[in-house]
Each structure stands twice: as structure tokens, then as C-alpha cells.
């Protein structure tokens, strides 16, 4: 697998902690011995807007952004954003996404509609996809704030990275007092 570049596109809403999640993911991949690049945009985009982070890994990675239509995995933190970025996913790609819905301003104002049945539409187009009730699992882990760790756990199933590397990255990145609940959240996500 090492000579082939793998592409993971993280999408969600500003403020959801996507940049930190992609940070942990990149660290895991570096610890796994890969060349890693990640790209994102700060500033204007953070104010509740749509957020995208590209993570690429392999033996040698050139472009920090994923070539259009070549994402292997779409890693979604919010349902509508996952749906929005499906065009960037490969034909045989897969989605791992939270079922969380955050209402955009046009919908909040009653002027636009939040699309219906997104999970079914995603699964119809990309059968190997997983939509996770991450909030419920985070609650089960003991803290709503571990929701992104649950999602990382679910993502880890789709990647050829050792459990040790994940464990190491969690130890490196998560403050000690939150480590236990995050390790639990990761395990719950991995089983989901």
C-alpha cells in the first residue's frame, strides 16, 4: 500500500474541532512512517462556515490538496457538509460521517430546506459508508466533548494503521485528565 497515496477529506462546520482532529490524524500517519501532508484554510472560513481539511499520505506526497475526485475517504463531522463534498469522493470511495445536523443560516431563517434522508442517499451512492451516532457514543464514553474521538475511532476501521500508532498519538495529543474518556470514546467509535 505504501507507494499509493491515500486521501482523506475532513469536512464540517467551523468550531467543530475539525482542525484538531486532522492534526491527530496527521500525527498518527507520521508515526506510521508515511509521508504526510495536510491542507486547510483559516480566517474567514472559521466563523461558522463550511470547513474542509485535506489529509494525504503515502510513500511520497506532492500536492497538499487532494486532486478533485480522488478522495478515498470522506470523513464528515456534520451531515449536510458530508453530503456537500461527495463530488470530491472517488467512485468506489467511502464515507464515515456523524449523523449530527447543524442548521445553516438560510435554513434557520426558514428560507431554505435542510436536505432529507442524507444518510440513505450517501449509502446508496457509496455502499461501504458508515453514518455514526457519534453524540450518543460520546455520551456513553462520559463526555460529549469526545465526539470527534468517537469519529476518529470509526475512521480507524477504514485505515491500515496499527492500534499502537493511534494509541501513541492520543497519548501525545490529549491532555492526561481527558485521556481515559477519549480512549473509551475511540474504542466505542471503532466498534460502531
Amino acid at each position: 500500500m505504501k507507494n499509493k497515496v491515500q486521501n482523506i477529506l475532513l469536512v464540517g462546520v467551523g468550531g467543530q474541532g475539525i482542525l484538531l482532529a486532522s492534526e491527530i490524524l496527521s500525527e498518527v500517519l507520521m508515526l506510521g512512517g508515511y509521508d504526510v501532508k495536510k491542507a486547510e484554510v483559516h480566517g474567514m472560513a472559521q466563523r461558522g462556515g463550511s470547513v474542509v481539511s485535506h489529509v494525504r499520505y503515502g510513500e511520497k506526497v506532492y500536492s497538499p490538496i487532494i486532486p478533485e475526485g480522488e478522495a478515498d475517504i470522506l470523513f464528515g463531522f456534520e451531515l449536510l457538509e458530508s453530503y456537500r463534498y461527495l463530488p470530491l469522493l472517488k467512485k468506489d470511495g467511502q464515507v464515515v460521517a456523524s449523523d449530527l445536523q447543524i442548521v445553516p443560516p438560510g435554513v434557520a431563517l426558514g428560507k431554505e430546506n435542510y436536505p432529507e434522508d442524507i444518510p440513505d442517499k450517501i449509502r446508496a451512492a457509496f455502499p461501504r459508508s458508515r453514518i455514526v451516532n457519534a453524540m450518543a457514543l460520546a455520551q456513553q464514553a462520559g463526555n460529549m466533548r469526545t465526539v470527534n474521538t468517537v469519529l476518529l475511532g470509526a475512521l480507524s476501521n477504514m485505515m491500515e494503521i496499527s492500534a499502537e500508532a493511534w494509541n501513541q498519538a492520543m497519548h501525545n495529543r490529549v491532555p492526561a485528565k481527558f485521556l481515559d474518556e477519549n480512549l473509551k470514546a475511540f474504542a466505542l467509535g471503532r466498534q460502531a
Binding site: G48, E70, Y83, L86, P105, G106, V107, N113
Partner: peptide
């Protein structure tokens, strides 16, 4: 052409940045 995979058929609500 720039390759595009699956494209949603409906118009999606935009998510512009907003004051907090």
C-alpha cells in the same frame, strides 16, 4: 473536464461565515 463524482441533485443550503 475536472472529474466530479456523485453530485447531489437538490440545491444545497449555503453555509457562509457568520458573526458568532
Amino acid at each position: 473536464e475536472i472529474p466530479e463524482g456523485f453530485t447531489p441533485t437538490e440545491t444545497l443550503p449555503q453555509r457562509p461565515p457568520n458573526m458568532c
